[in-house]
């Protein structure tokens, strides 16, 4: 109930409510963006822009259309995808679409990273590749079930059930860390 109240205050442009929500979700939103852009600096920059956008569009959030986090997740991934579609980024990083979020673990040296790679590694340690793929597509790329089915070459009915079992696996891993 507390979250609902916060969100309601935020919708009325209450800076204090916004501050609390920012504290709650800023790390997550920066993380979502990082799974897509895979660059700490760029992710942090976009993250700030995303929260400005969230504030400016506060009135347009409607709880009947989904969770507050789902709403800001959508804004964040759109901003991040816009970024990687921009020309400059395309030139810098090729083959990005084939590279899933676990790429964060492989692409850089751990000691220079702000990302909690140890935690991330534990979280995804026994996730199958097909789980990493489906979570990436549905949560971080915003693919529809149909698009995800085509991308992964599986029947559309399988998307829902496979995702459910992958998220369950993730939840089990969460409890162990």
């Amino acid at each position: 109930m507390q979250l609902d109240l916060l969100v309601e205050q935020f919708r009325k442009k209450d800076p204090n409510a916004f501050k609390t929500l920012h504290e709650m979700y800023a790390d997550n939103i920066c993380g979502v963006i990082n799974t897509i852009v895979k660059d700490d600096g760029v992710a942090q920059e976009i993250c700030q822009d995303v929260f400005i956008k969230i504030w400016n569009n506060a009135e347009s959030y409607n709880s009947s259309k989904g969770r507050f986090f789902t709403w800001i997740l959508n804004i964040a991934r759109n901003a991040a995808i816009d970024e990687i579609r921009s020309k400059t980024y395309k030139n810098q990083k090729k083959n990005l679409s084939a590279d899933y979020f676990v790429g964060i673990l492989e692409s850089r040296e751990e000691e220079h990273m702000a990302v909690d790679t140890k935690g991330l590694r534990k979280l995804v340690k026994n996730l199958k590749e097909k789980c990493v793929q489906i979570i990436e597509l549905l949560y971080f790329r915003g693919y529809t079930q149909k698009d995800a089915a085509e991308e992964l070459n599986i029947p559309i009915g399988t998307v829902k059930t496979r995702n459910r079992s992958c998220i369950s696996q993730l939840r089990e891993n969460m409890e162990s860390i």
Binding site: G31, V32, N34, D40, I135
Partner: peptide, 11 residues
């Protein structure tokens, strides 16, 4: 949790 683990932190 997953997104937080992938986060570079807030700058």
């Amino acid at each position: 949790t997953l997104s937080k683990k992938a986060s570079p932190g807030v700058s």
